[in-house]
Write a protein that binds this DNA or RNA. Sequence first.
DNA 1: CTCAGATCGTTTTGAGCGCTAACGATTTCT
DNA 2: AGAAATCGTTAGCGCTCAAAACGATCTGAG
Lengths: 147, 147
Amino acid sequence: MRFDQPPPEPLASAPGFLLSWNGQRTAHTFAEALKPLGLKPHHFGVLTLIDSDPGTTQQELVDRSMIDPSSMVAVIDELEELGLAERQTHPSDRRKHALHLTEKGRETLQRARASAMKTAKELFAPLSTDETETLRLLLRKLAGVEG
Amino acid sequence: MRFDQPPPEPLASAPGFLLSWNGQRTAHTFAEALKPLGLKPHHFGVLTLIDSDPGTTQQELVDRSMIDPSSMVAVIDELEELGLAERQTHPSDRRKHALHLTEKGRETLQRARASAMKTAKELFAPLSTDETETLRLLLRKLAGVEG
DNA sequence: CTCAGATCGTTTTGAGCGCTAACGATTTCT
DNA sequence: AGAAATCGTTAGCGCTCAAAACGATCTGAG
């Protein structure tokens, strides 16, 4: 899909298509922004979650990220290869792995965060601050998020 | 990705993720709704475009649908196999194909439209009519659509 | 009129992605 | 102790998209 020009009519009038197109463009733009760091969106998401809860397990990450279990294995494999995270033995359950970030992982996460925030700013530039917040709340409601 | 439950925090607070998740869910739900008719979203889109401009060419469809040229060949092949559309000789350029719907194609398109509208109604049920319209306008603006 | 270059539709190839199903190891339930 | 559930993992399928190449056809410069 091309994202360098807005969708033509009549697609640009269909709410469903608009939602899908904006969603794909957003995902694509974030992916591009993370490329220079050697990361994909999944990597960024998992780094963030491990950082916020060190020692967490892969199962917990699956629940909190909506990433498929089999995909999670690959993501963590790659984070280990990049030297950003480690599987450690879980203190109370030998089936589980306790996941931790390395120092390099924390540094990379910071840079990724800066890149993501810059990208978000650019993406939502066509909207005012108020409009962006309205959009966010509508999307939350549409997604069925409580509260 | 699972769409039977809303995304957990902190994902449900990130505008970028919300946009991407809602977009994917929308695309997925439409795809499911079209399955009983033996159609995929691409088929529905192309049927709609041919119906609105009979005799159009594949190149024009590519421009108006944002579908990849190599994918467009497969989509039209399948529409022909299903007996919904036909490639006819183009009156002024023998390289081109003039595309037309069959009677069966028009009937199927009507049923697909009904199904799509029902699906859209269900998808946007969490929002009021005003909210849905606000969302649509914000998404248009975000996408960079003129007017 | 001719011939070089552009255009259109198509085919092929290959990479990337997420999902399903199954498996061994381990833990928990009964 | 045995049955069932959980965790991580692997292999394989199907789908979509991107890129390159091709023949057929049209267009424009000379």
